[in-house]
Write a protein that binds this DNA or RNA. Structure first.
Lengths: 197, 197
DNA sequence: GTCTATAATCGGATAGAC
DNA sequence: GTCTATCCGATTATAGAC
């Protein structure tokens, strides 16, 4: 029979990850102590070790989960139509997924260097899957003549850097709404790869 | 009378900054101890404090110097001709300056959050000066009809993120030479802002 | 300018009570 | 599952000899 309520473990585990994510995004992994994370959760430091064997694994879990949730969300997003339409759908998905997740994006990029070799390989593999999705769209547009660019792989990295950079400056109370930002970037992206007629 | 040789101070100071830059780029500011920096320089930890009052100021110096040298190099670069030519010159300058300086770029971006409020304001002001240079080029192209985009300020941030992202993947022994990368990005940048004929 | 020694604090991780 | 107490090593920064 399914439990009707989450156990402490079901509740505290996510709280530990949320606290770690927020603190690490603000100060960096090495600058955040397990004691600070525990204080943010509202427990003592010893309790954290019921949820992670060590600090390194906690960091890795944050990054792996971020990439897996990104891929899962992308898999559920309809990407259809012409390559031009697919590229617009990808652009909108990327912005909508990443902009509300600044902390995850920042940590997943910035703390890569603090992962062990094995953990790094896992996260990089997931990232590569996402890049491959965009590369597939660009390849389709190349094949049917709707896109043109000098190097497909570099274009993939360029577009992702361009789009992810939004998280560095976008603010909910800023000059532009997220919808306006989407329009601006759809325009930039489309034009940068569209075949000249 | 001018000194013919650098004093220890003239030599050790730069060595301290070089060691700090390299280590911080690899591991993050909080993860690098003053002892590690001293070991890399070849002195004991106490000696470092002849060159910086504290670790925070050492980090700030790295970032401030990076931005000041970037602006100085840009000021000496000829940016002339039509807006389209100016944009190409900016693109090539940006790539040529940043790609060989991965550590500086990474630290200057990643460790911003570890600066005090005052130090942050200084670095951000310098960064803003650089962005303004690109914005001026875009404004000129808007004015004479050679460029078209939906939002000039967002386009500035987008282009800079796109170009700076090269430092995350470019390798001297990789598939592409720096010259080839320049060509690819000049193409992407030009097309993303060129007015449609 | 550099060294050694030290102060004072804080770090990750664990053991055992409850 | 959480707490308290603790181990033991590392941290920044300083003082004073040379």
């Amino acid at each position: 029979m399914a439990r009707k309520q989450g156990s402490h473990s079901d509740i505290t585990g996510p709280k530990v990850r949320a606290a770690a994510l927020s603190l690490i995004a603000r100060h960096g992994c090495a600058a955040v102590s397990m004691r600070q994370i525990a204080a943010e959760v509202g427990v003592q430091v010893g309790a954290l070790y019921n949820y992670t064997p060590d600090k390194q694994t906690l960091l890795f879990d944050l990054m792996r989960r971020h990439m897996e949730k990104l891929l899962a969300a992308y898999a559920e997003t309809p990407i259809a139509g012409t390559p031009t339409q697919q590229l617009e759908a990808f652009t909108r998905f990327h912005i909508r997924y990443h902009v509300p997740r600044r902390d995850e994006v920042f940590v997943s990029y910035m703390e890569l260097r603090n992962l062990s070799v094995d953990n790094f390989a896992v996260v990089e593999g997931l990232r590569r899957n996402y890049e491959d999705a965009l590369e597939g769209i660009l390849a389709a547009g190349e094949a049917d003549g709707s896109f043109a660019f000098e190097d497909r792989k570099v274009t993939v990295l360029s577009l992702i850097a361009q789009l992810t950079g939004i998280t560095n400056w976008y603010r909910d109370d800023g000059r532009l709404t997220q919808e306006q930002v989407e329009e601006i970037y759809c325009d930039l992206v489309r034009r940068s790869v569209a075949a000249v007629r």
